[in-house]
Design a protein around this nucleic acid. Structure first.
Lengths: 356, 356
DNA sequence: AAGGGTAATGTAAGCGCTTGCATTCGTCAA
DNA sequence: TTGACGAATGCAAGCGCTTACATTACCCTT
């Protein structure tokens, strides 16, 4: 065992740098080896029932023996299909999309599809780039997050004939097929619960609403709920920050150090809320006695804070799985993409209490 | 706004199902449009300085006008390079690899490379499959997690001439280039800190050590530290569970409900530790007064528990960035892959205290 | 026994791009 | 003026695979 204080250390082992030609076995090699044509081998792989049983066995054995694996580029070019679905998500940094994406990937894998993931960092320009990249890589279909993006992107998809499914969003009036939930209504329901506890000064920590339509919708949900009770916009103290635990903490401090501070701080998602929880602890504020805090998404984080975060549960896994099924059906059987609205559910843990 | 209680709902909008041929513009189209050969257009893209300035401008304009994007499959087949790096990680579900991966992706993107991510679910068989898939997709290089995997996988990589870099691991005696940290030493250091607090009955919650060499190494670190103090294996209460917050909680309950229970519970990573924290709360045990808990990794979760988790900080972002640089250099300039050991650091938050 | 049908397999034409080599053409030195 | 040379460009051969169509070999049916 080594001392832990070793400095960042030096070269130890290295791989063998490019030598000879490791050239892969090709269809032709397999064909030669069992005295059939490449067509037959190809059919063994793509339509096994169109090949005689013994030939098939022989071919499969040869494939195994040679360690043959089809060349993706060639296949893509010849067949025009890639058995690949691309996904562009805003970020991989936090766990918001992790569980849904994992389910999505599992679903695809089961159907023999591969998932290509790209992240945009919430930048529309980058997202457009990533879509282009995935398209030119031959993705057969795409999963995108949210509705809000440049028309140019939708045009590109249409021009390419590339089916796209939107996720983490659902709006009855949306022009594109989507699978998700109603951000507005879900956050409004949570806001109702908060207002029911007698809170009238509400703080709200939001992600940037200009490039993130889910964030905008959630904010709209709070506003709607407040309006229904006759509360004005002035009763909502808004603080917009980038996603992150630390930024959430800062925003919370900002909200709580002003005069006439809110009695409840609602957050656009659990990550921000977790940050707020930490800041509350540091400020010596008891949750929910001194201040209530809520989140949104119900990711793992929400169970870990103390007390557990009151939040909105989103069926991530179900959404990912259904999205995979839908896209596979669309790509493989030309089934139309259909919008689906999934139910969300309030999860009352311990961070929401009556107004002091 | 809709009622939140709406049932999982039905078809609303659908995309236009396959029509006409959306066929993309090709190199030939671009070439025709400006009266040059495809070779010239290709060179404009791949070796601009080998083309006259005015021709180049004309071609680039045409590319823009036509919205041309190169066909990846064709390019891969003709050139044999894909400008793609693949990564196979155990899971996307929790945040353990998220931050490192994000940094990795950023680094690659900056160098003009694309990242392909696949996850294995800690299943060696699936991992081997994913490696094969990525290889046949023309990945120019691979990032893999940990050292432990079947020799067949390494053979495959070697046969393909596919450079691979291992991450989240570093061992001086390792046969393959790796960038990471010394799991054994890092966990031993943490165990020393625990033992320094007078704990003698140690509980340890581990992930499955048979398919996860990092988990095995961390466990070895604890054992080594204990051995150095003359403690026997009997003083270590081991509980092995799959990764997860809930499984961590269960394991903690198991450890604490037995007679002669441990005074400190060390966990193989922060996710398990977060679960343990929750279980401690539910059992009415104060941390660290009644029991100490430690984690490993220092992911976001670790800041969110109350009190904050005492853990081992791993330089995820640095690791991801360096891995990207190394692989790009290897692929683009044939630079040898070099093993790098990064420093870890104990983070004393609040969950480790003196033995009761 | 002949004709027709079917299942199994082979033939060969691309898919869109890169790149080694050939060609063209203008420039410059002798 | 001529030849050599280099820069710019064109030509065309693949890269490994899929698939429409052609061919072959059987097995039935009448």
């Amino acid at each position: 065992m080594q001392a832990l204080t070793l400095p960042l250390s030096q070269a130890i082992s290295q791989d063998t740098v490019t030598q000879g030609t490791p050239s892969q076995p090709t269809l032709q090699d397999v064909a030669d080896r069992c005295g059939v044509s490449t067509a037959t081998v190809s059919r063994c792989l793509n339509a096994p029932d169109r090949v005689g049983k013994d030939t098939r066995d022989r071919v499969l054995a040869a494939i195994d023996a040679l360690g043959y694996a089809p060349n993706f580029g060639a296949r893509l070019m010849a067949a025009g299909r890639s058995n690949t679905i691309g996904a562009v998500i805003p970020t991989m940094e936090n766990a918001i999309f992790a569980q849904g994406l994992q389910a999505f990937q599992d679903g695809l894998h089961q159907a023999g599809f591969t998932l290509l993931v790209a992240s945009s960092g919430y930048d529309p320009q980058v997202e457009a780039d990533q879509v282009r990249t995935l398209a030119s890589r031959g993705a057969d279909g795409l999963l995108l997050i949210g509705q809000g993006r440049d028309k140019a992107v939708y045009d590109l998809l249409h021009a390419r004939g590339l089916p796209a499914l939107l996720a983490w969003t659902y709006r009855a009036d949306a022009p594109h097929p989507a699978i998700g939930f109603d951000n507005v209504a879900a956050m409004a329901e949570l806001a109702d619960a908060v207002l029911d506890q007698g809170h009238r000064r509400i703080g709200y920590i939001s992600a940037d609403t200009t490039t993130n339509d889910r964030a905008a919708e959630r904010l709209a949900g709070v506003r709607a709920a407040m309006a229904r009770r006759g509360l004005s916009d002035g009763d909502l103290e808004l603080c917009t920050v980038p996603y992150g635990i630390e930024t959430g903490a800062q925003a919370f401090r900002t909200l709580m150090t002003q005069t006439n501070r809110p009695t409840a701080v609602m957050c656009g998602n659990d990550v921000l809320a977790a940050g707020a929880m930490g800041a509350a602890r540091d400020l010596g504020l008891a949750v929910p006695k001194d201040v209530s805090i809520t989140g949104f998404d119900d990711i793992e984080l929400a169970q870990v804070t103390s007390p557990g975060l009151t939040t909105v549960h989103v069926p991530h896994a179900q959404m990912g799985a259904k999205a995979a099924d839908a896209l596979v059906a669309r790509v493989a059987q030309d089934a139309p993409l259909i919008s689906v609205k999934l139910p969300t559910r309030l999860v009352m843990r311990g961070t929401l209490g009556p107004a002091p």
